[in-house]
């Protein structure tokens, strides 16, 4: 179920934020064929603009904008969660994703949900896959509620959301790394408002 997301238009409160790590995700060239990108949000205009010059396939799952409660329910089994994520992502079997843009999705999922999500994504990861995610520095910080996009190689775009913010789960770096399965945090860097951005690479 897609929640109604009011996004900035007209006199847009769109902001851009410098990112030290985004270039690590975006710059490595794809050797041949099409760049395949999986974005867990709705399509941000800036992201589509950024990739406009590339031969690419962009998948916008809008998972962040869906009803996330169902994935976090304690009474759901692991198999049920896996089934729910598979249905929501609806990825074509056999494709390989070059770039995962998780944005702040992991902040709104509990450990069981992240575990199930990564299980669903693992067949789509290849050796050179890379990912970007945003988290909180610590549990004392408030998570700002934005919709994210790529503004440029070194800049994120963020659109304030006006919908109800789901409960936030703060995961320690150690727990987070365990949950990521085939991926792990390679680098982290501070962002504004008590956030950190992470680069996730494939475990070797």
């Amino acid at each position: 179920m897609l929640k109604s997301v009011k996004r900035a238009s007209g006199n847009s409160p769109l902001e851009t934020v410098s990112s030290s790590l985004l270039s690590t995700v975006l710059e490595p060239p794809v050797e041949e064929g099409r760049l395949v990108v999986l974005d867990m949000g709705l399509a941000a205009p800036s992201t589509v603009r950024f990739f406009n010059q590339s031969k690419c396939r962009l998948h916008f799952t809008a998972l962040i904008d869906s009803e996330l409660d169902k994935y976090n329910r304690e009474e759901s089994s692991y198999a049920e969660r896996v089934e729910q994520f598979s249905a929501a992502l609806n990825l074509q079997p056999g494709i390989k994703i070059d770039i995962f843009l998780f944005w702040d999705l992991f902040c709104y999922l509990n450990k069981s949900a992240i575990d199930a999500l990564m299980e669903v994504l693992s067949p789509f990861v290849h050796d050179a896959s890379r990912a970007h995610s945003i988290g909180l520095l610590n549990a004392r910080q408030q998570m700002p509620f934005y919709e994210y996009g790529v503004a440029s190689v070194g800049q994120l775009s963020q659109y304030p959301k006006t919908t109800f913010q789901p409960p936030v789960y703060v995961h320690s770096r150690r727990d987070f790394n365990k949950l990521l399965g085939c991926l792990s945090v390679d680098k982290s860097c501070l962002l504004a408002d008590g956030r950190v951005e992470n680069i996730l690479l494939v475990n070797r």
Partner: peptide, 25 residues
């Protein structure tokens, strides 16, 4: 909601899109 295939795709601020975009300039 769907899949878009075109050499170029423009989303204006405020547009809502869920699905895949396949572009090749």
């Amino acid at each position: 909601v769907g899949n878009i295939r075109a050499p170029r795709v423009n989303l204006e601020d405020g547009a809502k899109f869920k699905g895949s975009i396949e572009m090749d300039p």
